[in-house]
Design a protein around this nucleic acid. Sequence first.
DNA 1: TCTTGACCTGGACCGCGTCCATCGTAGGAT
DNA 2: ATCCTACGATGGACGCGGTCCAGGTCAAGA
Lengths: 136, 136
Amino acid sequence: MSDLLERLRGRGWRVTSQRRVVAEVLDGDHVHLTADEVHARAAQRLPEISRATVYNTLGELVALGEVLEVSTDGRAKRYDPNAHRPHQHLVCSGCGTIRDVRPTGDPLAGLPARERFGFTVSEVQITYRGLCPACA
Amino acid sequence: MSDLLERLRGRGWRVTSQRRVVAEVLDGDHVHLTADEVHARAAQRLPEISRATVYNTLGELVALGEVLEVSTDGRAKRYDPNAHRPHQHLVCSGCGTIRDVRPTGDPLAGLPARERFGFTVSEVQITYRGLCPACA
DNA sequence: TCTTGACCTGGACCGCGTCCATCGTAGGAT
DNA sequence: ATCCTACGATGGACGCGGTCCAGGTCAAGA
């Protein structure tokens, strides 16, 4: 994400203080923040930033492929800045923490043509669930 | 799901007309209905059934392992009556229809110990996305 | 520096789901 | 068959996550 702002400027993005702050928040610790958490952290640096702007900016970053949306619990969506390296997620059923993991092999290989029902399958999302060491 | 009500009675469930109607709705076409769709179909048979009751009943069926909750789009949860046969889901990015599919092999095998970070992994949810024949 | 269209704001609004006080009733007890 | 009562149903208020909108603001090109 380091030169994210330059990439976005190159794509015609108007770089504003709000967008920069949101990008910097995501660029920090690689945790999976909710939109409200992003808003809270952004507001520490830019107190008057609005929720709507955070939602808009996150949506744009997702549309541009710079950030991934993850919804593992049916509650708030989370935003994953690790978008350029394909990976899956490992979720603790106890505390809800999420880790990025990289399974071996081609995940599409497990779905034989007979089970595709004529679909053009292009993407696979895998969520591994279990208990983390602390919760076990 | 055929003798579902008997199983539930055996577990101490009080069988009411509302619960029977909800179970019958799920037992119909094996589509993946939202809670509101379940409510609408139930209301055709039992006009005064309340939303809260439908939500309660669905939640109980999930807790008892008779029905699965599926949230593929971050919108409303869907309810899958095919709970006794392990399967995954194939979702059309165009129209949103969901098909049950059965991948080959053990889905847990793809995650080597090194990528488990000490977690006790017990469950794998896979969502295949693509376009169905009609949307392609 | 000026201009302008893209952007930001705050608050109303919406969809999905939960909660709660109250009423109704399934099913055991008699 | 009838009664009793605890479990279930009702529906309306509420909460959270997210979207929309009218109006004010400002980045960046001319």
